[in-house]
């Protein structure tokens, strides 16, 4: 086994589904979220989406910004959640920190706001993110981004009522006790079973890292699915905050929409549906990631994409 301190992730930790990419679905789309965040210059969008496997280091930062699920992490996040909820003071780390984390991911760069939000409300007490090996990791660019994501969450009040997430950059701050299997903690975590069961749906880890779905098929990105599972068991106050922070409202200009249903076809997630043929489409905010592709695509400029109001 290689020395874990030299490990980093690779392109194999990334699952790519080109048929979801906004650029592939609509060649005039201006989306470049993955390109902008990638610290290694591994993303190319010139001829549709492609990831250079020599340059990609598996920091998975792109998976946390792609609004369409074209880039997602290959590993099983719900298994992580399940492992963490069995421990009273869980520690989550990456592959470099195997020995002193209760659960690991390829790189913590894949923790999007949705993931942090889910962790926050699925666990009790205190969750430590083991960043002790990040300083000299080639993927250290994720440190600042992760901290910023966490700040955004707490600034919007979204981490209220949840567990406390601590970023631990030095080894002394990490107390990783062996996994405790005593009855009390087992029953404490029992209340979370619902969420874990639900999360199984998200856990279909696949061997290949290249996935091909039909362009006509709709698929909700894992991040959005995770958010929807998490929000279903929150207080009304939090739900209102979730709406303002994560939800989008798509509406149509009645006078210019021709009801061609083109945006229904282009939407990667299935948030737009045909109600009545030749009339404006029907919108489901739970399925919308706010990617804006429908607005970019409409020839008649009839689509408005706006944040959803809290109330």
């Amino acid at each position: 086994m290689p020395d874990s301190s030299n490990l980093t992730g690779s392109r194999d930790d990334l699952r790519i589904d080109r048929s979801r990419c906004l650029r592939m679905r609509f060649s005039d789309s201006g989306c470049r979220r993955c390109l902008d965040i990638c610290p290694n210059g591994a993303v190319s969008l010139d001829d549709g989406l492609s990831i250079n496997s020599k340059q990609c280091r598996g920091c998975l930062l792109c998976t946390a910004v792609c609004p369409a699920g074209a880039l997602e992490q290959g590993s099983d996040f719900s298994a992580c959640l399940a492992q963490l909820s069995r421990v009273p003071e869980p520690v989550l780390g990456c592959v470099r920190t195997n020995e002193c984390s209760h659960a690991t991911m390829a790189c913590l760069g894949s923790l999007s706001e949705e993931h942090l939000f889910a962790l926050c409300h699925a666990l009790d007490g205190r969750l430590t993110l083991n960043l002790s090996q990040c300083g000299d990791c080639p993927n250290s660019a994720m440190l600042a981004i992760l901290a910023q994501r966490l700040n955004t969450l707490s600034a919007s009040g979204l981490s209220d009522e949840g567990c406390c997430i601590v970023l631990a950059e030095s080894a002394q701050d990490i107390k990783c006790r062996a996994e405790s299997v005593d009855r009390r903690s087992f029953f404490r975590s029992f209340g979370k079973v619902l969420l874990q069961n639900a999360a199984v749906i998200l856990s279909n880890t696949r061997e290949q890292t290249e996935q091909r779905t039909d362009y006509t098929g709709k698929r909700l990105p894992m991040r959005r699915e995770l958010l929807n599972r998490t929000r279903s068991r929150l207080s009304l106050e939090l739900e209102l905050l979730v709406r303002t922070h994560f939800d989008t409202c798509v509406s149509f200009d009645n006078s210019s929409c021709t009801g061609c249903q083109g945006c229904v076809a282009i939407c990667p997630t299935g948030a737009l549906m045909t109600g009545v043929m030749d009339e404006k489409p029907v919108f489901d905010y739970l399925l919308c990631t706010g990617c804006g592709l429908c607005r970019e695509f409409c020839l008649d400029h009839a689509v408005r994409v706006t944040p959803r109001a809290g109330l």
């Binding site: 679905r25 083109g262 076809a265």
Partner: peptide
């Protein structure tokens, strides 16, 4: 038909087609 998303822009554009 794998890549087609069914937006029907081709049908609109073709002078020999009607939606």
């Amino acid at each position: 038909d794998e890549r087609c998303i069914g937006c029907r822009r081709c049908q609109k554009a073709c002078p020999y087609s009607a939606t």
